[in-house]
Design a protein around this nucleic acid. Sequence first.
DNA 1: ATTTATTATCGTAATATTGCAATAATACAA
DNA 2: TTGTATTATTGCAATATTACGATAATAAAT
Lengths: 107, 107
Amino acid sequence: MGASKIDIYSNEINEIAAIAKVFSHPARVAILQYISKQNTCICNDIVDEIGLAQATISQHLKIINDAKLLEGTFEGKSLCYCLNVERFQELQSLFNSFFNQTKSNCC
Amino acid sequence: MGASKIDIYSNEINEIAAIAKVFSHPARVAILQYISKQNTCICNDIVDEIGLAQATISQHLKIINDAKLLEGTFEGKSLCYCLNVERFQELQSLFNSFFNQTKSNCC
DNA sequence: ATTTATTATCGTAATATTGCAATAATACAA
DNA sequence: TTGTATTATTGCAATATTACGATAATAAAT
């Protein structure tokens, strides 16, 4: 008990849930918003901007990165994170098709 | 430690995260999809349809309901759950404006 | 090679979530 | 009122998530 039984759901359902999980923590939403606001794309001021420890931010970035939402390149000493806009759009589309499909079938 | 520090984020950010949390579990996505598919709107076959205990489904329904996504009326002995389409659409819009805003600001 | 700055990982504690059995509450039927 | 069906709540165990300090890894500069 305690673990989600992901094997009993369809792939589509698990995918939607996995996408939503990325956005289900305010730190990750804040990180994504902050990265997108910096049009320079230069990063880990994220730690200063958001009030969390560096290790924690790094952990959240890993989750965002695992969803393929980031592109990172080294710029001097520091890593420059950038939003993968295509992937971001893809997630938005998947979410919207779930929303639209669900809405339209309803009573 | 362990608890999310929701006080350090803006309301908008917390709202997006809270919405996403509803969809972040496959059982809840499946429930929403199932409710919408039943154009009759008659319900707790949900327990049979999805392979989870009645108590667990009821718990998930509570979370969906707390997000104001359900309308429930009694029909004889059984409760008839229905998707609150206006609210559903509202969540979709909030999500989309976050997506669009984030996308457009990026490098 | 050593230092310095930046990011990732490990270990651990606190809290949250998931799931279920048992039980309570609710609503109708007899 | 008693029984029956449906849904909610409670209590508990298992697992997951969040957060942080300490430490490692990486990359440039001295």
